[in-house]
Nucleic acid binder design. Sequence first.
DNA 1: AATCAGTTTATAATGGTTCTAAACAACTGT
DNA 2: ACAGTTGTTTAGAACCATTATAAACTGATT
Lengths: 132, 132
Amino acid sequence: MKYIDKLRNSGLRPTKQRLQICEVLFNTERTFHFTINELEKKIKDKIDSKISLATIYNTVHAFEKKGYLKQIPVNSNQTYFDTNTTNHHHFYNLKDGKLIDLENSDVGPINIKRKIDGKKIKSIEVLVKLED
Amino acid sequence: MKYIDKLRNSGLRPTKQRLQICEVLFNTERTFHFTINELEKKIKDKIDSKISLATIYNTVHAFEKKGYLKQIPVNSNQTYFDTNTTNHHHFYNLKDGKLIDLENSDVGPINIKRKIDGKKIKSIEVLVKLED
DNA sequence: AATCAGTTTATAATGGTTCTAAACAACTGT
DNA sequence: ACAGTTGTTTAGAACCATTATAAACTGATT
């Protein structure tokens, strides 16, 4: 199957739950943003069996660690994730808490001129907050 | 006093607690980043009387609403604030959760070319995550 | 001084996330 | 195929930052 190898190659056992979550997360036309809460709802809608909330947390964190998901830094009580793991940035609509992708061509290259000794840059993320 | 007018002009009553918090936040050589937890400790160290945690939350939110503090978008279970409210960006050290200011000259101007109908840009924030 | 509105406070409630430990399922070697 | 091992799932409890509550208090106004 599609995701079994992906999981095995990452050292993750391809369990039924993980494969189902893969379907919801990655078998889509477009990438999307989600909170755990929203993902839980999506899973409930898409499959008839039930996956424990703890498993959803575990899986999302495992996938993030393997680089299949990215956390998006926003000020919210909930953590936002992105199935689009390429370098890109976001609008954040303060009114409804929704994120919108910004193409790199919409922002232009960002050049960090300063260096911190002994550290390397893991990611550069731009958040553009929107209000009415 | 120094902060009485500042508070009055913002429609905030200059209470003993707010003035004390002003001292801790604004009567400093340099601006700094903090979580509520860290601020609570700082207040305890600096003053002998005690300020309720609820008041610290209330005050920080009131100050943020008035533009005297800024929230910094990071992925953390705690909310980070900045006493530097000018436009600038941050390094985020994933190892210890500490923030480092990035001067605008270290990043260069960021030009958001895309517009969202009916929305205006409230802020543009760059977060550069650091790892070893 | 009296009144009113805003503020502080201790405490409870909330809610997202993590922990626990027992049941279960996938892998390994035979 | 089987047994043993290790990784995974699960429900529920625990955790902890934050917010709500509502009573006491304080600053401003008259």
